[in-house]
Nucleic acid binder design. Structure first.
Lengths: 414, 414
DNA sequence: GGGGGATGTTCGGAAATCCTGACAGCCTTC
DNA sequence: GAAGGCTGTCAGGATTTCCGAACATCCCCC
């Protein structure tokens, strides 16, 4: 149960901490042991890997575990917390449980019981949400939208550049909907013979159609839908509400098609009830890294010998790349990189053989202060942009005081 | 808040039971005192009256309160359980809380604290009285006022901030009045076309009007009533007492409208015979909790999977919130929170993703600290890689001291 | 087995950062 | 033209961060 799970252990006592640490390691968990509240905040809020559970002592040198929990519970959605303490009482236990702690164990305890209860949380912990777009804020927003769209039977339109995984999102939407058992029918107008498939889906003169009873019709590359098919669909929608769920996907080229009349505007608006915009990878580098990790894990296992990991510089290079081909490009780059890699790590040169300059950055690294400032600067600008230049509002978004933000803006020259 | 509530008290100790029983009676609760598990099962599962809460001892002559709880928890919906015990320990408390008990108090306890915690639970449960404003003293006062207003046919004026549910109160008043069958006609002057609707309600030159025979006219956003309509209404009132019941609603802006003459003072006083002031949510946090509970119960049932409950921290945060948007804001927050929640409880971060009072949803940004940490983490990894894992060397590259780098690595879990 | 160098860790003080609070302008909006 | 909301600015104090110093280890190489 615990194998491969990421667990943060917050415990200052050497003996106790050591024994828990050892045991969890033995069980195959990846344990991050911190001894102070301040450390724990960072480890839980900005983890290198999603945290599956937190095992937390109450009495700590620089504060209490309770403080830690309350502080975090205001700002982020938390992994399950298991409190472990020798000094607590019923009141504390009840208070914490009511506040949302997952479990509470008194010292001394049986290690086996402890492990069992921890496994329970980890198993239940839905911190491993089923991501199908990515882990960035933008991606989870899209996922939420898809989930909601799946609840109502309204035509949905997925809009995004090439390779952003519109097809996969459509399939996910179908899979989340109530009548997922009813079949998923894709018509890709970028392919030959799309019209034939489409014809079988639409009601004919006698009103019979393949999808009369439900299911999902996915119209891919909608902008290239033939005019004649558009007319038939519009007419079918007009005559009688379709039983099937309609999902369509298109890219930037739809603007053009609408402008020059190649696509009927009235039909477009009928299909665009729920709009699901998928941002390109260049706007969400975290997802590029996430997707790379997934691909790496999947494909590296087949490799002989498997690589030990991914160079941090590769991540850096991916973050900087603009991804004109989005997910499709990423996929092919990673797979090719895995084949080409010679050392033990996946290096930038493996993934970007076409960009020799990424390999050469050996000498000097920007200092920590530099990148920190750069990151802050980017974020501040982003916040200011979303608030339309309102400083106070931006400060709230960034969770600093207005004065601090002002100071930083002075310092960074914004 | 216990007045009129039905509470089952399960306690075998005469002294303890008697004292609780007396006190609860004093508070106005209807208490059903049983001294055995067997009796309690019946009293709770097949009560003569819906039970609002159960106060339960653990050690009982024919079993334990824990058994009672587990036995009942198989059946459908349990009232909130508050356990009271002198012998229990942390383990028991945690076990019960995890199983869904609402609270757990150790003997001996302060009676006042006990009552407070019990009230909290009871507030959550649905009550016998048909509340439509809230459960706080202020809200029940408003409800009483509405009930009385329904008895007499005098113009009533509901005054309250945006989102305090003035429309709902008006409808409730209508529903409580004798001629509720006569129809309810709303004219919302904040909306387009209000004047047209208004015209059809007012007697014309021939003295005929839509509401000549009764019913209720509800003038919403009264302060924005056009001057011309004011004149017509004043005239109609002057000429002949209207058959219909008049309810109007306005907010703070009416003071302004009266001051600068945008609203006729004479008309205002004619409409303000029965004054129903609705206090804002910030002045009655109990109602915020109550409304949240109602919404939670209603919407959580549709959720998949349903949440187990609401974190005590969330209640606390709601209590502290000022609710600039009052009920409307609360509603949208709770509904969004239910969508966003990831764990098993509704946490503060779900309901208040934006810390302070921003009424509308705002795309949440990672905090400055988060991106700063993330940037540092990346750079540190990069440096460590280029130095081949040599910490001291990496520190030099990053231009920080070795100690600092070590600290950061601790904090970030590297 | 004994340096030498690197790391893991703690400590105390200096330096910075951040927050609260306050006040003055400078806009809108009544 | 008064009020209220927002920004620019500053001060003072509480925290946090950062650094240098200091040990104890640990490992490698001689």
């Amino acid at each position: 149960m615990l194998k491969g799970r990421h667990i943060v252990l917050v415990e200052d006592d050497e003996i106790m901490g050591g024994s828990i640490y050892q045991r969890l390691r033995l069980e195959g968990a990846v344990v991050h042991w911190v001894k102070q509240v301040a450390r724990a905040v960072g480890a839980i809020r900005t983890p290198g890997h999603p945290v599956d559970a937190v095992v937390c002592d109450i009495r700590l040198p620089d504060g209490s575990g309770e403080d830690l929990f309350f502080r975090l519970s205001d700002s982020v959605s938390l992994p399950p917390f298991l409190f472990v303490t020798g000094h607590g009482g019923v009141d504390q236990a009840v208070r914490l449980m009511r506040a949302g702690a997952a479990d509470y164990i008194q010292k001394p305890f049986e290690m086996s019981a402890f492990l069992q209860r921890l496994s329970l949380l980890v198993g239940a912990g839905s911190s491993e949400i089923d991501h199908f777009v990515g882990i960035s804020a933008a991606a989870t927003a899209v996922e939420d939208l898809v989930r909601r769209a799946a609840q109502v039977n309204q035509p949905a339109m997925i809009r995004g550049e090439h390779g952003t995984g519109k097809g996969r999102i459509a399939r996910a939407l179908h899979g989340l909907s109530a009548d997922r058992a009813q079949g998923f029918h894709e018509v890709d107008f970028a392919k030959q013979g799309a019209s034939l498939i489409f014809d079988r889906l639409m009601p004919d003169a006698e009103g019979t159609a393949l999808v009369g009873s439900g299911g999902t019709i996915f119209l891919n590359a909608l902008a290239r839908m033939p005019r004649e098919a558009q007319d038939r669909l519009a007419e079918a929608l007009e005559r009688d509400p379709l039983r099937a769920r309609l999902i369509s996907a298109c890219g930037r080229e739809m603007d053009q098609a609408l402008a020059d009349g190649a696509f009927r505007a009235d039909l477009f608006y009928k299909l665009d009830v729920i709009d699901i915009p998928v941002p390109p990878f260049r706007d969400r580098p975290d997802d590029a890294i996430w997707l790379m990790m997934r691909l790496f894990e999947a494909k590296n296992a087949d490799r002989d010998p498997p690589l030990a990991g991914i160079s941090a510089r590769t991540e850096e290079a991916m973050r900087a790349h603009v991804w004109p081909g989005n997910g499709r490009e990423l996929r092919s780059r990673v797979i090719r990189g895995l084949e080409m890699a010679r050392g033990t790590l996946l290096m930038p040169a493996d993934v970007f053989p076409d960009r020799p300059e990424v390999a050469e950055t050996r000498a000097e690294l920007p200092s920590l202060a530099t990148v920190r400032d750069a990151a802050e600067r980017r974020q501040i600008l982003l916040a200011l942009e979303t608030t339309g230049g309102q400083v106070g509002e931006a400060a709230r978004l960034l969770q600093v005081s207005r004065t601090t933000l002002w100071e930083k803006m002075q310092k960074l020259g914004i």
